[in-house]
């Protein structure tokens, strides 16, 4: 695969190295900007919230008891 790529890149070796470096940088950029942020929510590393079901809001409203405090001001 990489051998094929190397053989099909034009120019002498330093030009090939340049192309490969540019290609690697492009791949890394695409991964960092698009691919990794997209795949990150599907990975169970960073769920930090307390949730009941799909969304936390219903659970909050379920337990919320609107009791205006006497200390409230305008």
């Amino acid at each position: 695969m990489y051998g094929w790529l190397w053989r099909h890149l034009p120019g002498p070796w330093f030009v090939k190295v340049f192309f490969l470096a540019a290609l690697a940088a492009a791949v890394v950029a695409v991964c960092f900007i698009y691919f990794f942020p997209w795949v990150s929510p599907y990975l169970p590393f960073n769920n930090v919230t307390i949730e009941d079901g799909m969304s936390p809001e219903p659970s909050i409203s379920q337990v919320y008891s609107p009791t205006p405090s006497p200390g409230s001001d305008s």
Binding site: N47, T49, I50, E51, D52, P56, S59, I60, Q62, V63, Y64, S65, T67, S69
Partner: peptide, 21 residues
Amino acid sequence: IVYPHEVRVIWPVPNEENAVP
């Protein structure tokens, strides 16, 4: 340390359901 579905921890009065804070 609780499990993710234990929303009681963020009740107005934590762990006390329908309590007036």
